[in-house]
């Protein structure tokens, strides 16, 4: 069931680590996405998940983001998302994740 999960990691502005992923975050990739995200959140002070190359996020993906947000918060760190567009942005707004995560439009908007 597991699919290859394509991702990248880069230094962003203001001390953020930008975690870029592409493709889908769905029931078949969520487990891998969380594992990769957990590694980055644990070692970084501030992690921004860049969704600009993601065209699909299901509830499994929403749960990944919630878990990573909680993990960051529990450890005195920050986790947010940037770059969501189209249906991905709609899903984040309808579930209230845009507010919870203080979603930013682009990497350059990270505070």
């Amino acid at each position: 069931m597991k699919k290859e999960f394509i991702q990248s990691e880069a230094a962003g502005p203001n001390g953020w680590t930008v975690w870029g992923v592409s493709g889908r975050i769905d029931i078949t990739t969520a487990e891998d996405a969380y594992a990769r995200g957990e590694e980055i959140v644990r070692k970084s002070g501030k992690t921004a998940l860049d969704l600009s190359e993601v065209d699909y996020v299901s509830s499994a993906g929403i749960r990944v983001m919630m878990r990573l947000f909680d993990l960051a918060e529990d450890n005195g760190k920050e986790f947010t998302v940037v770059g969501a567009a189209g249906t991905v942005a709609r899903v984040l707004k309808e579930t209230g994740m845009d507010t919870l995560l203080q979603m930013q439009e682009t990497v350059n908007d990270l505070p």
């Binding site: 299901s58 509830s59 929403i62 749960r63 919630m66 909680d70 899903v91 309808e94 579930t95 209230g96 994740m97 919870l100």
Partner: peptide, 20 residues
Amino acid sequence: PPDLTPAVRRHKIGGLGIFL
């Protein structure tokens, strides 16, 4: 519909999939 307020979501998020 799911209750996604912070106090609730930590325990259990029910109905999110059907909501979507």
